[in-house]
Simulated assay, not measured.
Amino acid sequence: MESSHIAHDVARVLNSTQKDSPGKVQLYVFDEAVTGREDRASINKETLSPAQLEVVALEVALNAAALIRRRRAELADEHGHVGVLGTKTSDVDPVTEVDQASEKLIREQLVERVPGSRVLGEESGLSDGDCAGDGAGGEVLWIVDPIDGTVNFLYGVPAYAVSIAAVVDGQPVAGVVVDVKAGEAYVAHAGGPARRLSGAGSAGEGGEEVLRVVPAQAEASLGRALVATGFSYVAEDRRRQAERLTRLLPRVRDIRRIGSAALDLCRVASGEVDAYFEHGLGPWDHAAGALIAARAGAIVAAPDYDVMKEEKALVMAVKPGVAVELAGLLAD
């Protein structure tokens, strides 16, 4: 079955209960074909193509990753742990001064490089920038997670990332996720291939690997799929997620919980996992990684970028061959 037909079936399954559940968030399902338009460019102040926006995002994300590495080395105690500055959604949802410093650097550099653009960041919300007005056609909205996987960062678990996506007219056109510890970057733009860049200290200086998911016909069933997921920091949400996982676990090969949504989405693109899903992400968690997964050939489902964590919406990226089956299990 062609990817576009699979995406249509996934959308039908995930959104079929809309009329019976008025509070349910409508999900946008997209794939490689939907993200194939290279003409979705920024026309605010200066015309920039998706490829150029990817270059900007990569440069800034690498700068932020260097800051994070430096500050972690300065702040870590004798056990390799970094202190918490405050909390967000619950007492176990931390923020550090490095999160804030990283977002400040990213905001300043993005607006400097693309005047007129705005930034939606996890720590500071939406900035006005110097654009003429909200929602102007062709305006670039940068969606930023300064450290995705903050708990991993706190403990020294090597799975945390900088995530930057460029959205134009409501559509993702460029995405970059930098794995800070590994020194790798996952990148993609509308119409271009998903790639993994590696290098010593700067992901742009080393090798480049084009990422493709395994073709649908090579997959037998969901029962052979390795599935990644994540959990909320809110206790009641975790209880519901655990119930859903209990139903899913007997139907798949195994489950992985790595602790960074952005990196999980990129691992679907690279083939390190077959699928990823999570309910209750913010747009900064999924905007860049979802585009990278789609450009690698995955089927992706996500809400619009104004849907926040509180809506408990599903984000999913999955290889085409098991997409409909997984969607059916997650549709409730």
Score class of each variant (00 low, 15 high):
Arg257Glu: 05
Glu219Cys: 10
Val315Asn: 01
Gly192Lys: 08
Ile68His: 08
Ala200Asn: 06
Pro250Asn: 07
Ala200Glu: 11
Ala296Thr: 12
Ser221Asn: 09
Asn44His: 13
Ala41Ser: 08
Ala288Ser: 15
Leu329Ser: 15
Arg253Trp: 06
Ala182Ser: 10
Gly36Leu: 13
Gly121His: 08
Ala65Val: 10
Glu122Asn: 06
Gly121Asn: 13
Phe153Trp: 08
Asp20Leu: 11
Leu245Val: 09
Tyr160Arg: 10
Phe30Tyr: 06
Ala11Leu: 05
Thr47Gln: 10
Ala66Gln: 13
Val180Pro: 00
Pro172Ser: 07
Val213Pro: 08
Val178His: 15
Trp142Met: 12
Val187Leu: 12
Val82His: 04
Pro50Glu: 01
Ala275Asn: 02
His5Asn: 13
Gly289Cys: 15
Cys266Gln: 14
Leu58Ile: 08
His279Glu: 04
Val234Tyr: 01
Gln100Asn: 09
Val119Cys: 11
Val168Gln: 00
Ala294Asp: 07
Glu184Trp: 07
Val162Tyr: 03
Val307Pro: 01
Val315Arg: 00
Gly116Arg: 08
Ala166Met: 06
Ala288Cys: 11
Thr47His: 14
Phe231Val: 03
Cys131Thr: 11
His279Arg: 05
Glu325Asn: 06
Ser4Phe: 11
Arg256Met: 01
Ala76Trp: 02
Ala165Cys: 08
Ile143Thr: 06
Val180Gln: 00
Pro320Lys: 07
Leu154Gly: 00
Val119Pro: 01
Glu122Met: 09
His8Pro: 04
Val227Asp: 02
Gly321Arg: 06
Tyr160Pro: 09
His8Phe: 08
Pro22Leu: 04
Ile147Arg: 03
Ala57Gly: 04
Arg196Asp: 10
Ser90Phe: 03
Gly116Asn: 11
Gly199Arg: 12
Val315Glu: 00
Leu226Met: 09
Ala185Pro: 04
Thr150Val: 07
Val34Phe: 03
Arg251Met: 10
Leu14Thr: 02
Leu263Val: 03
Arg247Ala: 12
Ile43Trp: 14
Gly201Arg: 05
Gly297Lys: 05
Val273Pro: 13
Lys19Met: 10
Glu97Tyr: 04
Arg196Val: 15
Arg72His: 12
Gly297Val: 05
Gly280Asp: 00
Ile68Met: 07
Ile68Ser: 15
Gln100Thr: 10
Asp91Glu: 11
Thr47Ala: 09
Val318Met: 06
Ala174Gln: 07
Arg118Cys: 06
Ala66Lys: 07
His286Met: 11
His81Tyr: 15
Leu197Gly: 00
Arg195Thr: 08
Leu141Met: 12
Leu53Pro: 00
Val315Asp: 00
Val25Lys: 07
Ala101Tyr: 00
Gly282Cys: 08
Arg107Asn: 09
Ala302Gln: 09
Leu222Arg: 02
Val98Met: 03
Ser3Met: 07
Ile106Val: 13
Val268Thr: 06
Asp274Gln: 10
